[in-house]
Design a protein around this nucleic acid. Structure first.
Lengths: 205, 205
DNA sequence: CTCTTGTCGAACACTGGTGTACGAGTTAGC
DNA sequence: GCTAACTCGTACACCAGTGTTCGACAAGAG
């Protein structure tokens, strides 16, 4: 894909530093200025503009970078077996990614076209969607609501957890359990009993 | 509280127009400028500054106004009887308030101190919280999660519904049912069956 | 070693928003 | 119908951010 000849080692280092600093700064403050990011990267503002033509492109790159990393990290999660247990595992390892990067996401939303953002999320979304569809086929997740709705609900509950935490109403350690309990209940087909958390903590046979 | 002598009829009209325009403009674009709002109100920018010392105060007033109206409108909802049915009714009449004003809320979040926003929400929050606590006491809502968590989850699902709608994945007419189904399932105590939507649509005896 | 590629800081033009000042013209209240 | 309250437009000072230009200087690649 990159037609461009390999950048100099020097430049590669700068780009990496900028990308990291951008991710970090925008995750704290979605309105972080370019100067702010450049300073955090230990780099001149002009140098930054040498690599990223404008702010939007920088935000895009930062988000893409963050998502790619997160996506890779989640490859380690075992999604086989009981879909409910698999979902619990997935939530366990992914919810604080959502937490860490939600401010960055907000920055992207105010600068990037909505289509672009969805394109970036295609990878992660596919994973969740696949798991939910399998759960529906096996009858342990409800089928009376669209898959996209369930995905959205799950996301929004994680989002809510983040809010609760930095409002001081929930401890960081509790969050995963709360999210899991809420989402699994929400996914349960009407007429079927809501699973207790303890049922899911059993190790695989 | 208002020590000030009653404003002239003239001025009262301006203030009302500004408040309404601010609510409307900020609900479409949380970054709406003061000039934009003044224009929408059919009023000079200077006149606006005559009544609201700065942008923050204007946003505050607009949010307060919106919440007060919404709160009053929800007074009509019958919260007695089966808490699940009552919750369904409450969702029916309140979710599109959340939808309409979420952009305004975002504007407020970026300008007003967090404490101020919570203070404004005290009224509505109390209503929801009371209903949930009654449901818990009667054993139809789960008690293994904090009330504040349940309130937050309910809010976030409504928020999610708004996203789904303007992403075109959900029709406006479906939203209330989807939210109700999701929230009621999420609120069901572990071990108890998730209620079907049809069970709740029964008229009162 | 040399030459291309990067980096840096300072400076500049531009944009878009906020809040204030002035002076002339309207309008409601009594 | 007089007066105080209100409105309006224009203009101004100010600020913060963006993106560009320039020239001097460092550092990697061959």
């Amino acid at each position: 894909m990159p037609q461009t000849q390999p950048k100099r080692a020097d430049a590669q280092r700068s780009i990496a530093a900028i990308l990291e600093a951008a991710t970090e700064s925008l995750s704290r403050n979605p309105d972080a200025s370019v100067s702010e990011i450049a300073k955090a990267a230990g780099v001149g503002r002009v140098t930054l503009y040498g690599h990223f033509p404008n702010r939007a492109d920088l935000v895009d790159a930062a988000l893409a970078h963050a998502i790619e990393n997160g996506h890779a990290a989640l490859d380690a999660v075992d999604l086989s077996g009981d879909p409910r247990q698999a979902l619990a595992r997935l939530i366990d390892s992914s919810w604080h990614l959502v937490d860490r990067f939600r401010s960055l996401l907000q920055a992207a939303q105010s600068v990037l076209p909505p289509g672009r953002i969805r394109a970036l999320h295609a990878g992660p979304a596919e994973r969740v969607q696949g798991l939910i569809e399998r759960g529906q086929a096996e009858g342990v997740f409800r089928s009376d609501l669209p898959v996209s709705w369930l995905v959205g609900s799950m996301h929004s509950v994680m989002h809510s957890a983040a809010d609760e935490i930095n409002a001081g109403r929930v401890a960081t350690g509790e969050a995963a359990d709360f999210i899991t309990a809420t989402v699994l209940a929400a996914f349960t087909p009407p007429g079927r009993p809501v699973p207790a958390l303890t049922e899911l903590r059993q190790s695989q046979p």
